[in-house]
């Protein structure tokens, strides 16, 4: 579903690359956590997938398309296969819950009847039934993130990218949001979630890709936020201590 082949992204030639020879493959239907310190390249990694950023070298394949060579007029078609949610929700304040979600369908030309049906279903799925008329200021952070998730998945994308979706939420709400993402993943959507939330990662035990300074430091199945695999120190050739 997503394949990075030796992808390097340089924003500023004088600084270190944001991504440095990253090669990763994510299968359809997977749930992947992207972890790493701030500035490690998580957001750049996600932006490469929905082609907000283009690789300086290497290739990014998404749903069979080489995103790096995609012409600009084909980008909208790619993005219809991808839903994106952010830490800051990005809800349109002058629209209510229903309108915010419906907006994503209206702009790609969906019919009114189809929009109504899908939006109602999706709002129920994310747990917002009965809140259609609410405005942004009437919603809690968790509810706003549910609206954002509903908007991201209303067009039934193959991939859902979540860039620190629980970053602004308390632990209980974060857990609820993660449950929504799990539900979406259970329906067959590939989910890639960049996060700092070790609780969630440790509890879910899904694949973890760890980035550090633009490089993939770790890519483990059913992993935790910090690696449990003891580190090998190449200089001495002996087994080191587990990372803190």
């Amino acid at each position: 579903m997503i394949r990075f082949e030796n992808v390097t992204k340089v924003h500023d030639p004088r600084a270190k690359p944001a991504l440095d020879s990253v090669s990763v493959e994510i299968e359809g239907g997977e749930f992947v956590f992207l972890v790493g310190a701030s500035g490690s390249g998580k957001s750049t990694f996600l932006k490469m997938i929905y082609r907000e950023d283009v690789a300086t070298s290497g290739s990014v394949y998404v749903a069979g398309h080489n995103v790096s060579t995609l012409t600009s007029w084909r980008v909208p078609k790619l993005r219809r296969k991808i839903g994106v949610v952010f830490q800051d929700f990005r809800i349109l304040p002058q629209k209510n819950v229903y309108q915010n979600v419906a907006f994503a369908m209206q702009v790609i030309g969906a019919s009114r009847a189809r929009t109504k049906e899908r939006v109602t279903d999706v709002l129920a799925m994310v747990g917002l039934e009965g809140m259609e008329k609410r405005m942004q200021h009437e919603l809690s952070g968790g509810e706003q993130q549910r609206v954002a998730i509903a908007r991201a998945v209303v067009n039934q994308p193959d991939i859902l990218l979540a860039d620190e979706p629980t970053g602004n939420l308390d632990p209980t709400t974060s857990e609820e949001i993660t449950e929504v993402l799990k539900k979406i993943n259970a329906n067959g959507t590939t989910v890639v979630m960049a996060t700092h939330d070790d609780d969630i990662v440790d509890r879910m035990r899904r694949r973890v890709i760890e980035l550090s300074r633009g490089k993939v430091m770790r890519d483990e199945a059913k992993a935790t936020y910090t690696s449990l695999i003891p580190k090998v120190t190449p200089a001495t050739g002996t087994t080191g201590e587990a990372q803190a």
Binding site: P76, K77, L78, R79, R80, I82, F103, I108, R151
Partner: peptide
């Protein structure tokens, strides 16, 4: 700009934007 950012994100064509 918020609307247009969302429009681009969900794959609205250039013409619609």
């Amino acid at each position: 700009r918020k609307e247009t950012a969302i429009m681009r994100l969900v794959g609205a064509s250039k013409a619609v934007i």
